[in-house]
Design a protein around this nucleic acid. Structure first.
Lengths: 155, 155
DNA sequence: TTTGAAAAGCTTGATAT
DNA sequence: ATATCAAGCTTTTCAAA
């Protein structure tokens, strides 16, 4: 496999997963490498696709999206031709933050950000009206967020 | 208290939500602002807590975590005193990437990254053995990830 | 692979509008 | 609020090991 991460890579990734703005000099001081060695490793990890992006994380509430819903969706499996259209629909909807195809009773799980319940209702009405293969969905409102992110535990 | 984001702030945030490494000069060119005005706004958004972090996003598979599970957990509500211990347990577990407290049949929804099924099984065995208030849980394996992130749609 | 140093580029802070 | 510019940092490049 193309990507063998050594112990230094893992330490490096652990740091930039938390803070991508830390100067290479400080990262190097923390892991015992010169700034240029840190930069070279970062470049390699970016080029190799281990680091896919460096992004700003917003406080959703401060940005005007205080509600998060978790939505289980069941689709009609007899109509696989509609699936890719549904996937494109999901890709287009900015309020859908996460979407997985899953095993089990339902077929998709979505995480949706919303300004208010009306906003969310409108989205779900468009969901069903624009996707004929939606059989049913169930909404769970999040009452609290304990953790949010995609950080991977590199020991 | 609600942060007022003007049109320029929203454009700015839209950009850095995608790419936090873009130089202020390029951001400014895109939204019609000088580099220092961009920096001033970014500083204000960071200080005001609208931007909570700037982080590197990893390819979980490349980093050795090819599996993602979605776990619904039901806890014994008669024992609220065990809840905060459970929350601390979640906070400590690096493989738990996301965790919400939700309405509905189950009480928590977790997103868990795993190296393999044994790894995941071991985590869930520790979950039940170390948290006496876990009544049941249901695992859904993700077969595909359509979208992942916490990006908020500004405008 | 690594370091170290110079060049280039970016950010920050002062000043002025 | 904003832009311009200079000073200070950070990143990048390259030679050498």
């Amino acid at each position: 496999m193309p990507h063998d991460l050594d112990r230094i890579d893992r330490k490096l990734l652990q740091i930039v997963q938390e803070n991508a703005r830390l100067p290479a000099e400080k990262i190097g001081a923390a892991i015992g490498l010169s700034p240029s060695a840190v930069q070279r490793r970062l470049a390699r990890l970016r080029d190799g696709g281990v680091i896919t992006a460096e992004v700003a994380v917003l406080d959703a509430k401060a940005a005007g999206f205080p509600l998060t819903m978790i939505v289980d969706i069941e689709v009609e499996r007899e109509r696989p031709e509609l699936l890719s259209a549904f996937k494109r629909w999901i890709a287009r909807e900015g309020a859908i933050q996460e979407a997985w195809y899953v095993t089990g009773d339902s077929d998709f799980v979505l995480v949706v950000a919303a300004r208010d319940v009306e906003d969310y209702d409108a989205l779900m009405q468009r969901l069903v009206s624009e996707n004929p293969n939606i059989r049913r969905f169930r909404t769970r409102v999040t009452l609290g967020t304990l953790k949010r992110g995609a950080t991977v535990p590199l020991e």
